[in-house]
Design a protein around this nucleic acid. Sequence first.
DNA 1: CGACGGGACGC
DNA 2: CGACGGGACGC
Length: 495
Amino acid sequence: MSNTPQSRVRDYPTNSRLFVICGKGADENAFKEAFGKYGTVEDVWVVKDRRTNEDKGVVYVKMEKTSEAALAMEELNGRKIDNHQGTLKVVVASNKAEGSNRDSREDEKTLRLFVLIPKTFTEADLRKEFEQFGDIEFCNVVIDRNTGDNKGFGYVKYKRPYHAALAFESCNPTFKPKFADPPKSKSERENREMYGDQRRDRSSDRYGGGSNLGASMMDRSPRNRGMKRGFDEELGYGFMHESNQRPSGGPRGGDIMDMLQSYPTASHQTRLQIITAPGLSNSYLAKLTNLVPGLEYCDLNEVTGVAHVRYSNSQCAAYARDKLDGFEYPIGSRLMVRYPEEGSDYGSSRGGGMAGMFPGNDRYAIDDRMSGLGGGGGDDSRERVQYCNIPLPLPQPLRTEDTPVAQRLFIVCQPAAVTERVLRDAFCRFGNLIDVYLLAGRNYGYAKYAKKENAMRAIQNLHGQNLAGQRVKVLEAEPPKSGEGDDFINKKARY
DNA sequence: CGACGGGACGC
DNA sequence: CGACGGGACGC
């Protein structure tokens, strides 16, 4: 129920929307001004009864960033913002589906972070890593009772929501911080195991349906905010251009839907997978995908850059696939739109759709010297991408996680800049990428390919190049550190 | 005292 | 400098 696209978009990033109790007669402009002191106010909504239009005495305020909301909450809770109103109560808004959260632990969700950590981490290590963001109430590392081993995650509780928010936004992204759920009761834990939530969480993370929409460094840079504005203009232009070409002028809304009823497609699928380049936010992707009628769901995992969307029928989905695949955003990168599990024969639709509408793209066929390793046929075009110093091949779909691994690569980089998302965007371009990941709290990671030739092409192209301003190393991985005997066999089979 | 709307206009 | 992920807490 909490998986509606609206709730995901509305409350992203986590804890950025505030619920204010202020009494009747709230002045929207007074709220904009007061909350604007702490950051960018995206929306102020004075709630009124839908029928009677009666003021309900509560206001929602959406801030751009988690930390801005936290600071505004700290500063304005218990204060007045103009002479006509009493004191405000300011809390983080609950999701629509969760309903009122009046009862208990309203501050729990603003102070404590859940973080992934290396198995070697102690509480002192955790504290050392996170105290840079503010005063810590406590840190703990969760230990397996049986083995005594660190289970690979821990908790950090701050004294102030603002400090927790700063850590959430700015810590090394390999920690994958999330605001911790309040501890569950024993009965709730048992339910969780019975219904297998852990498995579901894991697979949805891969496909972007997870709720781990942590902020990344890329999303906060002024440069990328500039890119978003550029995107808006580009978007408007592109679709405008298209509708102007239609016969009998200006189809709108239902007209387009009618036309789409007969849109040719051999597929009956209504879902699409979209791989986005770093820098795209869910709200922008939602606006884009919503320009094709029939959008029911758009859910981008802004950490992984993988989105799932659904349309109300297969014609709409097919139209969206055709028109949005190859759409250029940001400048020099393209969206990749596929049916789920669609094969990696790439290039048949390339250059169609929106792609041709933007002259001056830096896309060109490379010479034989650069493309010579290929052999796999297909498109050998390259494009400039924002985060890399050299042109890269066009994005290609990821293989499913159960695909056998033919070659692993060892990657060294600085994760604060070179996030998993940047790596995924870069490494998928050589084809048959299964997965790429960084280790928690470390500056290295691995990429897994289904074919050795693709892995070798990635080394050839990316080793020693700059990604997000950092020189990266890309080497063939050594076999995993083995225990002995069975253990080794198991690990080898799995990697 | 306490919970979920509506935008838009650019050809 | 750089070698091994995978997400929830004995309340």
